[in-house]
């Protein structure tokens, strides 16, 4: 082997900055940033804009760090699944040790800085979220139970609650219900996808509900979670973060979501295959709009409230 060929091989596999950034799962981070920002803005406390910016940034970094630790631990199963085979570790760009070092360092940085910038309850919640995602979900339950999606969803549901706590220093009914919104939304969202996309979790020996309990059971689960989700989503409208706009959005979208879950529950595999899983695909697309619209409505309600807008005064103007 010549020096030149050795050099070119290093060149091809050498990690660039983007590869290290990819360890932080940037797409997941966008959801974390959005929901944490909504939680923070919906809180009935005024925050210095720069401190608020930093709080969201540290929550996002904490979320990204847990993603890097997830990639460190799951490198073996990432390598055998098509969807994850191009991640930095299985692609040979970044070593497992590097991912562990980056994930651990960023976790500590994010928690300490969130504590210094806001309060230690918010920092504690962020630390718990990272622990929950990495240890409880990734290391322990992901490979053990078909309810892994429910457990993983809990970790993704914490950011609005952390955002709220960063602003207020406490936990309230509203922040717990914002947590419940993402927590209960994740299973039907993901299981609908699992019904129409052939996933290779089997190769990675990760138990998936569609395989372990069957597709009929998955349809039952989707309906059950959607009913619970609808109740919690509408209940959120009656807390301090709700309002007429949120309630309207919640009522319309939950009616549509319940109808979609009911349609999925009603049909069998034959009907689904006949129309190429059209109902399941429609439900999945609606689920994307569902979460965005709910948090978007909370964001608009919070912005209007901070600008001094009062729905009651609008009612007075109309009468």
């Amino acid at each position: 082997m010549s020096d030149a060929s050795f050099d070119s091989r290093i060149h091809e596999s050498e990690a660039q900055f983007g590869d290290y950034f990819a360890l932080l799962k940037p797409r997941v981070m966008t959801l974390v940033v959005f929901t944490a920002f909504v939680g923070l803005l919906a809180a009935p406390v005024a925050m210095h804009p720069f401190v608020a910016f930093c709080a969201v940034l540290f929550i996002a970094i904490g979320g990204g760090a847990s993603g890097a630790l997830n990639m460190w631990y799951d490198a073996d199963i990432d390598a055998v699944m098509k969807r994850t085979a191009r991640r930095p570790i299985p692609a040979g760009k970044v070593t497992r040790d590097e991912a562990l070092a980056i994930g651990s360092a960023l976790s500590a940085f994010a928690v300490i800085f969130l504590g210094l910038a806001t309060n230690w309850l918010a920092a504690g919640l962020l630390a718990f979220t990272i622990f929950f995602y990495v240890v409880i979900y990734t290391m322990w339950l992901k490979r053990l139970t078909p309810q892994n999606i429910v457990i993983g969803g809990a970790a993704g549901a914490f950011p609005p609650m952390i955002g709220w706590t960063a602003a207020t220093g406490d936990i309230s009914v509203a922040s717990v219900l914002m947590f419940c919104l993402t927590f209960m939304w994740t299973p039907p969202h993901f299981w609908a996808l699992a019904l129409f996309v052939r996933m290779d979790y089997d190769n990675a020996t990760v138990p998936m509900l569609t395989v372990t309990n069957g597709r009929r059971s998955t349809r039952n689960h989707i309906l059950a979670y959607t009913v619970l989700l609808a109740i919690l989503a509408v209940a959120l409208g009656f807390t301090s973060v709700g309002g007429p706009l949120y309630l309207t959005v919640a009522l319309v979208l939950n009616a549509l979501f319940l109808k979609g879950a009911w349609d999925i529950w009603k049909r069998d595999e034959g009907a689904s295959e006949a129309d190429n899983f059209a109902v399941e695909k429609k439900f999945f697309k609606l689920s994307l709009l569902y979460l965005f619209a709910h948090f978007g409505a909370i964001l608009i309600e919070a912005t209007l409230s901070k600008l001094g807008f009062d729905w009651a005064s609008l009612g007075g103007l109309l009468t």
Partner: peptide, 21 residues
Amino acid sequence: FGRNLGVGLVLAALIAIVFGL
């Protein structure tokens, strides 16, 4: 160069954040 530039910008951002906070 790209990697070093990225690390440099991250360090500069860290300084700006600590100062701003």
